[in-house]
Measured scan of single mutants.
Amino acid sequence: SEEEIREAFRVFDKDGNGYISAADLRHVMTNLGEKLTDEEVDEMIREADIDGDGQVNYEDFVQMMTA
């Protein structure tokens, strides 16, 4: 549901600035027990970053979650 997606976005957007940065993503993945290299984190950001601004905004996140 849209509310679940919004809630998930809030979990990833640690600093609440409306964007998921590589640092935000790394933090959440580490908490989930996933040890990722910087390259892996950057690749995840690139794949999710639809508009190419280097971070994942809510619209990018929705597209990723509903793809």
Rank of each mutant, 00 (worst) to 15 (best):
R6I: 06
L36K: 06
S1D: 07
V62H: 02
H27M: 10
E43L: 15
R6E: 02
G33I: 10
E43K: 15
S21I: 04
V28L: 08
M44Y: 07
A67D: 08
D60F: 15
A23P: 05
I50R: 12
R10A: 09
L32A: 03
R6Y: 09
A48H: 09
I20S: 00
E39V: 09
R46P: 01
D49V: 13
T37A: 05
Y58N: 00
A22Y: 12
G52Y: 07
G33H: 10
F12T: 01
I50E: 04
K14A: 06
L32G: 02
A22M: 13
K35E: 07
I45W: 06
F61W: 05
E34A: 15
F61E: 00
I5F: 09
T37M: 04
V56Y: 12
E34V: 14
D49P: 07
M65P: 01
A22Q: 10
I50A: 09
F9K: 00
E4T: 10
F61I: 15
I45L: 11
G16P: 00
S1Y: 13
G18F: 02
V56A: 03
G16V: 02
E3F: 10
L36V: 05
G52M: 13
M65W: 06
E3S: 10
E47M: 15
G54P: 02
A67P: 06
F61V: 14
M64D: 02
V11D: 03
M64R: 14
T37E: 02
F9A: 01
E34G: 15
D49S: 13
Q55T: 06
S21N: 07
L25N: 00
M44N: 01
R46D: 04
D51M: 10
G16S: 07
I5L: 15
D15Q: 11
V28Y: 03
I45Q: 02
G52W: 09
D13I: 02
A22V: 15
G33K: 15
N57D: 03
D13W: 02
T30M: 15
D38W: 11
V41H: 04
T66N: 08
K14F: 09
I50Y: 11
G54E: 05
V62P: 01
V41A: 03
Q55H: 09
L32T: 03
V41R: 05
Y58E: 05
I50Q: 09
M29I: 14
G16A: 06
L25G: 02
D51L: 09
F61N: 00
T66A: 11
E40Q: 14
T37N: 05
D24R: 01
Y19F: 10
F9Q: 00
Q63F: 08
T30P: 01
A23L: 09
D24L: 05
M44R: 05
A22P: 07
T37G: 05
M65R: 02
E3R: 10
Y58Q: 02
A8T: 03
E4C: 13
T37D: 04
L36Y: 15
V56R: 01
D60C: 14
V28G: 02
V62L: 15
D42E: 11
G52L: 11
V28E: 01
I5P: 00
A48Q: 06
E59Q: 06
G18Q: 01
D53S: 13
L36W: 15
R10H: 04
E59L: 08
E4K: 14
Q55G: 06
D24S: 04
E4G: 08
K35N: 11
V56Q: 00
A8W: 10
G33W: 15
V28C: 03
E43C: 14
G16R: 06
A48T: 06
I5N: 01
F61A: 03
Y19E: 03
M29D: 00
